[in-house]
Design a protein around this nucleic acid. Structure first.
Ligand code: ZN
Ligand code: ZN
Ligand code: ZN
Ligand code: ZN
Lengths: 169, 169
DNA sequence: TTTATTATGTGATAACATAACAAAATCCTA
DNA sequence: TAGGATTTTGTTATGTTATCACATAATAAA
């Protein structure tokens, strides 16, 4: 399983998020806290529209899309989660220290997603940017392909990770 | 202007596309040919829904979204165009030889987009993939930020490139 | 020619995301 | 602590992106 053993180095928790927000003067409201709780429970990427009912259920009330997107937006701003562009999905960040530092490996077959540190790549891209006079904000690096499990296994194994709706191959 | 002077090394044309398709046994139908013509005329990235009426007009008939997406899908398969994930847009590929080899620099301010060769980055990512046993298919590398022009100019300069609808800062 | 395959037309719908404005909560300062 | 400014959340509606499903047409293969 591509995800196994690769839990975040500095694991994000509600407590950690609370401390970080306090340090930054960011308001970790009940909605935002609950949103992070929901994401912590998802074992992998989740689409905004799968996240929405999960958040609503946990809060015990109906929610409309903007509320979900705002909560996700806050968590993105704080660097607690990352957006996977090629899946329209959101997942816990594995790197609280350096935002946009990750490289995503995304299995087209089983949907497994793993984020690894972008050492070296960051520097290389910074060099290219400098040559162009380009000031880099957000970096997106996503690699689609077939994960080790799917390469070495005859049949697709299910349940390897939460898979975004409709994206399972 | 970030784009200036950076026309594709091996410039794509209808003739080149025709030859490539013939070599591959791919059917370069009138619709697909016209789709490529339309994209050649766009000076930069275009959304599917901006592309759709342009294609329809050139064909002189109404088209529905699936037709546009199918044509774009074909051009993507052949490596004639690239999809810019963070803009939901399509643009001519600058690298006919090596698919998914590019790195996109995307200006958040003026919308300029430039694709450069991914030398070094490709190898670095391949190394990471190998370490994970991951077989890489498509690579996405997109850097968002501020282009040289926008950094060194007081006011935003317009008309630097075709900008995807609603994405101009 | 017959049959299979591939490509396109068409209407509907799914999936993803934000605009706009109102109401509530929080913060700030006098 | 009151009052006003700011931020957050609620709510309705709508905008944007992408695909399904099935019919028809064009092409390729037998
Ligand atoms: Zn990340
Ligand atoms: Zn897999
Ligand atoms: Zn490209
Ligand atoms: Zn710019």
């Amino acid at each position: 399983m591509l995800n196994s053993g690769l839990t975040p180095a500095k694991s994000l928790s509600i407590e950690v998020a609370e401390r970080i927000c306090a340090e930054r003067g960011a308001r970790f409201t009940p909605l935002r806290r609950t949103a992070l709780e929901v994401l912590l429970e998802f074992n992998g990427p989740v689409s905004a529209y799968d996240f929405l009912p999960a958040l609503a259920q946990r809060l015990g009330r109906r929610l409309a899309p903007p509320t979900a997107y705002r909560a996700l937006g806050f968590l993105l701003e704080q660097g607690f989660i990352c957006r996977i562009e090629t899946r329209n999905a959101f997942t816990l960040a594995t790197h609280l220290e350096d935002r946009n530092a990750g490289v995503f490996f995304l299995c087209d077959h089983c949907g497994a997603t793993v984020e690894v540190d972008a050492d070296g790549i960051t520097e290389l891209l910074a060099g290219r940017a400098a040559a162009l006079g380009f000031e880099v904000g957000r970096r997106i690096v996503e690699l689609q392909g077939i994960c080790a499990d799917c390469r070495y296994t005859t049949a697709a194994v299910e349940g390897q990770s939460q898979v975004v709706r409709g994206r399972r191959a």
